[in-house]
């Protein structure tokens, strides 16, 4: 589904991703763990198409299409979804209206008529319950005055509304209390199918108790340095990132 080969990305003079490679097949859940500043959000942003990053070399294919050539909206319509680490607040636009525009853009892309008001409302009600998001949030300005946990739940709600093929979750768990974490994880698990894939970026192993990954990758200094199954995450949690650094130094 997603093939990243030898991706090199810089911002300004600074090289962030260095020969980064990763392949994700349909239905797989991959977790990426790594210390702060190692380039996890950069990877997520580059996949979603954020402008300020410079792709120096390498390639990214999504279902055989060169993703790097698509605008961010075309990537989203193709089925890539990014749950932001820091979702923006947008005064004056309600989540309801935002989702109406997004859902109808997708339906148009798929050759479907816009959803009528009633069906849209039903869809919203169904999906917001997955993340236990109170109705009142949907008629408020996007993320405005939301707590950290509410913003993250709103991201997962949007993901549920758009039903992407590949969802990238950028530290959706960071800073959440255990209830919010469980809600977010349930949201993700309820969307897991044989076709949908997930790239779960996290700083902590804890999330992976709830979203059980098929693969765990350790990222350090712009690339993946170690890959294993879920036990690798436990090992990481126990020994800390220094363990990885030492192993790397020893090699």
């Amino acid at each position: 589904m997603l093939v990243i080969r030898n991706l090199n990305v810089a911002i300004g003079e600074k090289k962030i991703l260095k020969d980064f490679s990763l392949t994700i097949n349909a239905g797989e859940v991959h977790a990426i763990m790594g210390p702060n500043g190692t380039g996890k959000s950069t990877l997520a942003s580059v996949l979603a198409g954020k402008a300020e990053y410079e792709v120096e070399s390498g390639e990214v294919f999504f279902e055989g299409v060169n993703l790097l050539e698509l605008t961010p909206d075309a990537r989203a319509l193709a089925g890539v979804f990014l749950a932001f680490q820091y979702p923006v607040e947008i005064p004056g636009v309600t989540t309801t209206n935002f989702m109406k525009a997004a859902v109808n853009a997708k339906r148009k892309h798929d050759g479907l008529e816009p959803l009528d008001a009633k069906s849209f409302l039903q869809l919203m009600n169904e999906k917001r319950q997955i993340v236990e998001l109170d109705k009142s949030y949907l008629s408020r300005s996007i993320n405005e005055g939301f707590s950290g946990g509410e913003k993250k739940r709103n991201e997962i709600f949007q993901m549920a509304m758009l039903n992407p093929k590949l969802a990238i979750l950028d530290e959706t768990d960071s800073g959440l209390d255990i209830d919010a974490l469980r809600i977010v994880a349930n949201g993700v698990n309820s969307l897991r199918t044989k076709e949908n894939s997930f790239l779960v970026i996290t700083h902590y192993q804890r999330l992976l108790n709830y979203i059980v990954p098929d693969f765990v990758h350790i990222m350090y200094d712009g690339k993946i340095v170690k890959t294993g199954d879920k036990s690798l995450a436990l090992q990481m949690e126990e020994k800390g990132y220094d363990w990885v650094k030492e192993e790397l130094a020893a090699n």
């Binding site: 402008a51 909206d73 947008i90 004056g92 935002f98 525009a101 997004a102 853009a105 892309h109 758009l162």
Partner: peptide, 24 residues
């Protein structure tokens, strides 16, 4: 730009994103 990108990341094209933000 961050607001526009948020819209585009949800599949809404740039022109429409700007229209909605201006409207708001």
């Amino acid at each position: 730009k961050n607001e526009i990108f948020y819209f585009m990341a949800r599949g809404i094209d740039e022109k429409k994103a700007a229209a909605i933000l201006n409207y708001a």
